[in-house]
Amino acid sequence: MTANGIPIGDVLLASGALFVIGLAGALLRRNAISIFLAIELMMNAANLAVLGYAAALHSLEGQIVVFFVIAIAAAEAAVGLAIFVALFRHTETIDVNQINLLKW
């Protein structure tokens, strides 16, 4: 099974690798913004897999799904960064290990 002459195995392997790297970043980093970046990377890994299958199945629905995921990621980034800015104003840090109080 191929997509445009690209074996679906290649696509899935790349997608899986990116997802694992994103997971590692999200679990191991301490800077909130870096964690956020790693989550964005995981979303993109999923997008790649969806597009790979969409191309292999000659379906357009996959592109629509990815389109929505990107739009939602944009909304998420806006709100997430606003939270970080607000957090930084209160605690002067965005190191997640030092943000350990429920109430300031």
Partner: peptide, 16 residues
């Protein structure tokens, strides 16, 4: 990744 999207016949998504 955008380059890979172009190769997977999704240039619109690549541009987006």
């Amino acid at each position: 990744l955008a380059v890979t999207y172009v190769l997977l016949a999704a240039p619109l998504i690549a541009a987006v």
